[in-house]
Design a protein around this nucleic acid. Sequence first.
RNA 1: GGUGGCGUGGCCGAGUGGUUAGGCAGAGGCCUGCAAAGCCUUGUACGGUGGUUCGAAUCCGCCCGCCACCUCCA
Length: 530
Amino acid sequence: MPDAPEAHASDFRLYNTRTRQVEPLAPAEQTAAGEGKPVPHLRFYACGPTVYTFAHIGNFRSFLTADLIQRTARALGWQVTYVSNVTDVGHLSEDDLTDPAGEDKMAQALEEEGRRFANVYDLARFYTEALVEDWRRLNLREPTVRPRATEHMAGQIKAVEKLVERGHAYETEQGVYFSVESFPGYGALSGNEEAQSLQASGRDTVTDPEKRDPRDFALWKKDPDHLMQWHSPWGWGFPGWHIECSVMGRAYLGETFDLHTGGEDLIFPHHECEVAQNESLRDNTGDESGGPSIRHWAHTRFLQVEGEKMSKSKGNFFTVRDLALPRDEGGEGIDPLALRLTLISGQYRKPFNFTRKTLRDSAQTVRRYREVRERAEKALEEDAGGDDDRAGTQLDAIYDRTLAAMCDDLNTPAALAAAYEGIKLLRGIEEEMNGATARSAMDWLEKTNALLGIVGYDTGETDRAAKKEPGAVDDAFAQQVEALLAERADARERGDYERADAIRDRLEDEMDVEVMDNPDGTDWRRKLSV
RNA sequence: GGUGGCGUGGCCGAGUGGUUAGGCAGAGGCCUGCAAAGCCUUGUACGGUGGUUCGAAUCCGCCCGCCACCUCCA
């Protein structure tokens, strides 16, 4: 690995929802890495999904923000501990009331898919596995830890007990609630500081009559009939939604940590409640840790699809697999890395309009990255000589600008624009790459890929997905194409262009192959499938 | 009603006081049997209005429009 930290003095700046400004992301901890030189150690928590269905592209926009934060930190030479949870407990669809039907999202999903799953646990397991598959398909790196809410039940119960002991929570006939009044800072993160606005919001459905304040939220729900239930000091029941993230974050990252990320909808109530819980659970309130338990908050804005809110009823609702699964497995066969590129082509903090057009552009861009890599690989395989490395210094400068853009509040559009200059530079080289250029190109591609993840997969485990890439074809198909091209070459030599064009039409229209005649032969490739 | 954000050329999207963002599409050219691919060149912009300033897309006011959250949708 190159010693990145010295090469780039730039701070990693990120908008902080808590302070409402862009500020340096400053890891509190320095860790001795390798040769003993201490490096910043970023420790953060990214809210993951509830696994009651397949994750959609909007979910992944949010997960990609965490992925890019991690990649940028690593590119700066930082150490990273990155926790991303899986919520595999179904929480009530209405927090304050016991749903008359006693149902939550997981239970509803089970009802709809009862034939496929024996119980909610099977359903959760299935969708957790699907999540991880999609995660890899889009080339997101695995988090350091991926905890599940059900694995932290004892911790959640203990946390609720502690909150009760400390006077931050109280029990009613129906459950245990956090007392918002007991935590003066409530509302600071989201700006929802007025109790009135909550009451005025018109959501005043059936609430627990014993609740002391409309803002109070559930920590534990008593419900011996719930599909998922655990034994607690308050009888059988299940935990409130917000407590799981507090408990898992504290379990793996401690009482204070650097950063917490999630979708914009989580700012309130989820993260607001998490702050209330974390601060109330904290023991080290002294100065040694100083400041809030979670210093930096980053939230990803929702994406829209073709200018509209993504929703099932509008027919513009896409899961990763709808788009990126190969055609023979029920998807659209879109290159997963093109989908990834599309999802990061807007800055995380601005509304992003996901369109087919952008997807098509991205597919082309990803293919160009690949073609450049293939050219460089070929030059290296052929042991190309030459030490004229003019491209190298330019590529270094390009990479520096790419990283600098990422450090500027994850300005992915600017970063991608900078990186694309490298592609233009390398594509502009007309003759075969010399050895030095090819090596520089490979180095640059590797670094750029480590940062943005759009060139190829990091690990071997996703090779299966890679084989389904557009352009990757099986031998039988290739032989068929080559045979037709040979026939066409004959026809062209005879001057029978009618015949030659008929063959080309067949290749293009029926076999989705692009035919490209060069001075020294004919190349072909699969058309993009977007 | 409260809170946060946005409005840039045909489209997507950078830029936050004076200097080209970039991509895609479009136009012209090179190459080609014709195409495709590729390469070169290239036009169009800052929601409206008032103000600050030598100068504003960029700062401030007002207006219009759009989006999100306000109890579980990332």
